[in-house]
């Protein structure tokens, strides 16, 4: 059953068309990997789902919430309602610098979900434990390593128990060692049955954890299928070319 549906989403920045009529339907429990060249609207697509970007045209339907774009006055409230149920992990994590790891995780529970403080602390501690950072709960973001910060960001999102988690290149700002650290965490979450949309350049990882892969180019979804279908047998020339280039890097430089 589709939990999230996008219909004919259009978004431009000035003259630059970034999303050119996106249609997408995501089922509950789906782990959707979104890949493609830079600047083809992958991040914009994610950010349009929770309305951090405002598409000019289209329809977003999430369970019982339907938003017709562009938004009219009354629908603004629905945007907040939608955001409360969709979690997001950003490329640069955007932790609250003035709050400790624990306070970061608690913030949304207190302010948005209005849970009592005691309960909140327990939920937050559990969430930190899941990402292996319970012991670091009193650390401020600036005291944490590049691998710990995205994990706190993940815990912050998980604690809210969102229906969908959007991950916007959560590893692209990290060095290879830290990438593994974060990917392990994401994999563990994926196995818990969350619905996830993941934008990433880690093709191997995407093909391992997702059950569906989208290939975006020029603001359009040009490949949509299982990882096997998209990565091994792409139908379009553009995707073929893209994966060929990627694979070239993996080939040895010399043949003897």
């Amino acid at each position: 059953m589709a939990i999230l549906e996008l219909k004919d989403i259009h978004k431009s920045f000035q003259d630059n068309v970034v999303l050119d009529g996106i249609n997408l339907s995501v089922n509950k429990g789906d782990i959707v990997g979104i890949v493609g060249p830079s600047g083809t609207g992958k991040s914009t697509l994610l950010r349009s789902i929770n309305l951090l970007e405002r598409p000019e045209q289209g329809e977003i339907r999430f369970e019982d919430i339907t938003l017709n774009l562009p938004l009219k006055g009354k629908e603004r409230k629905s945007v907040t309602a939608l955001r409360k149920r969709i979690g997001m992990v950003f490329q640069k994590f955007y932790l609250f610098e003035h709050k400790t790891a624990l306070q970061n995780v608690m913030e949304g529970l207190i302010t948005v979900q209005k849970k009592p403080k005691k309960e909140t602390e327990q939920i937050a501690l559990d969430a930190l434990e899941k990402v292996g950072l319970k012991a670091w709960k009193n650390h401020y973001p600036k005291h944490m390593s590049g691998g710990q910060q995205p994990r706190v960001a993940i815990a912050r999102t998980l604690a809210m128990k969102p229906d969908i988690i959007l991950l916007d290149e959560p590893t692209s700002a990290l060095d290879p060692e830290l990438v593994t650290e974060v990917l392990t965490t994401i994999k563990a979450i994926a196995e818990q049955g969350y619905t996830m949309l993941l934008v990433s350049h880690e093709m191997d990882f995407v093909s391992k954890i997702s059950n569906r892969v989208l290939f975006l180019d020029g603001g359009k979804i040009i490949e949509d299928g299982t990882p096997e279908e998209v990565f091994r047998h792409p139908k379009s020339d553009r995707a073929k070319e893209f994966f060929d280039k990627m694979n070239k890097l993996k080939e040895p430089e010399f043949f003897i």
Partner: peptide, 20 residues
């Protein structure tokens, strides 16, 4: 970015202003 993160959580602008 922090403002965006708070907004994405579902905070209203008033809450973002007060809390962050």
């Amino acid at each position: 970015g922090e403002i965006e993160a708070a907004t994405a959580m579902g905070m209203t602008y008033g809450q973002v202003l007060r809390r962050i």
